[in-house]
């Protein structure tokens, strides 16, 4: 039986252009053996969700440094669900105060990462938590 290749998306919602983390993460996922789609900066949640569906992504990683994550992250989850992407997991990172974590988990994010988390930690988390779906 063929094995699913993990497909992961790195996306930057909102208007901030601080893409250092996003680009480092994209390379890290490539080196971990995943097929990684990078959307570039300045995406709306709607655009990210539509792209994730077209690309049949297993996990969308959002990066935001502008403080607008309280709107942008939940909105991305909502859009994904509306487009039928119920099994697509969403994780987030960037400049996110710990006080906002619960609110983001409640909104459906599967993981939230603080600054200073290492790349191997993130990959380990993905390996443990994201299983490519073989439903059909």
């Amino acid at each position: 039986m063929a094995k699913r290749k993990l497909r992961i998306m790195v996306a930057k919602p909102g208007l901030d252009g601080h893409d250092r983390g996003a680009r480092v993460l994209a390379r890290c996922f490539r080196d971990a053996g995943y097929e990684t789609i990078y959307t570039g900066c300045h995406q709306t949640p709607e655009e990210i969700a539509a792209a994730a569906i077209q690309e049949d992504i297993d996990c969308v990683g959002l990066s935001c440094h502008s403080g607008a994550h309280r709107y942008l992250f939940p909105q991305t989850v909502k859009q994904l669900r509306e487009l039928g992407g119920d099994d697509i997991q969403v994780i987030g990172g960037g400049v996110i105060p710990t006080a906002d974590f619960q609110m983001l988990y409640d909104a459906g994010l599967k993981g939230v990462f603080t600054p200073g988390v290492t790349l191997p930690d993130i990959v380990k988390w993905i390996e443990e938590n994201i299983v490519p779906n073989i439903r059909d």
Partner: peptide
């Protein structure tokens, strides 16, 4: 804030959630 930095007004759809944040 980012809408100002990018040349958008606060009511532009792209600016949602960003007002006064940064």
């Amino acid at each position: 804030d980012f809408p100002t930095l990018m040349g958008y007004d606060t009511d532009d759809p792209k600016a949602r959630g960003e007002c006064g944040k940064c």
